[in-house]
Amino acid sequence: MVATSHDVMPDIELYQPTDEENALALANTLGADGWLVGGGQDTYGWLKDRNKNPAAMIELTQIDAWKGIKEIADGIEIGAVTTLTDIANNPLVQSRYALLATAAGKVASPQIRNVGTLGGNLIQDARCWYYRRGLDCYRAGGNICYADSPEGLNREHALFGASRCVAVSPSDTAPALVALDATMVVASSSRERLIPAQDFFVGPERDIVNMTVLNDDEILTAVRIPSTWANAEFYFEKVADRNVWDFALVNIAASFKVSGGSIEDARIVCGAVECTPRRLESVESAIRGQQRSEELAASAGEMATEGARPLNYNHFKVPLMQNLVKRAIRG
């Protein structure tokens, strides 16, 4: 019997490894039964509502090796369980990669940022309320989508890349990291994978039940940001219904290399319009070598939403996304 509101933690094993090896061994042993916990902001709702029922939680926040921000040969490395507050306030991130500092500072609310981790923000599950309610929809392994229908509540859903599931990427830091050309460091007990941020996220056409390419035995341990885009010109903007404690209706993260008013190179990424952060490569190539101008911004905005397939209640995301691209390019 499905009760509508359990709202209490079930019995569950809690593992609190303090070193990497232990954590990876646990992830390997427990597989899909082991739920990784960072700050827990994406965890406790699922578990208290009993809509996800893993056998155990593996808490990662006591592993010092996966915490903190350090300089590496080419750029910086941020441990996956570094809190969003720490990232937003970090002088190194602020000075070189202000895009990420701004994005991290726009996540949810101060309370959530104080415990929420970068890793958690990146691999958090879809926020579609039908899915979060525990309905057996496509994303939950079922055979139906309740949001993509004539009467479905889909104001906050996808413009692009929908394939049965129309949920969007909810993260604010993900577009920033794609725009910074970051690399995800993914470890398991047997190997380490380095995955470009852009390829880390996966849409429903390829995997309808996961948001990332992480396998059950793998843990995102760190994010490396290369110096390629350090100190570039950045633009981040998040438009949400509320200014605190909300997910983006559309967000945008962009990095520009500008010389004499001319855009030499750019990476522009929108969140909340597709299941993955949407990199606007056609826009990037169209503006490369162009002088920044109102006209260029406007035409880039138009270009950004080509191929958008709005649902019944999210048409507004088209002009909103166009406007954000326009604002980013306008600078």
């Binding site: 055979n143 139906i144 989508c145 993509d148 229908s149 004539p150 049965r164």
Partner: peptide, 23 residues
């Protein structure tokens, strides 16, 4: 008929028990 296609938008019109039978 239950998914979006270039020819139509999905309607969710088939009851879930019937849909399960079809699957």
């Amino acid at each position: 008929l239950q998914i979006d296609s270039p020819f139509w938008d999905r309607t969710n019109s088939m009851p879930e028990d019937q849909l399960g039978l079809v699957f």
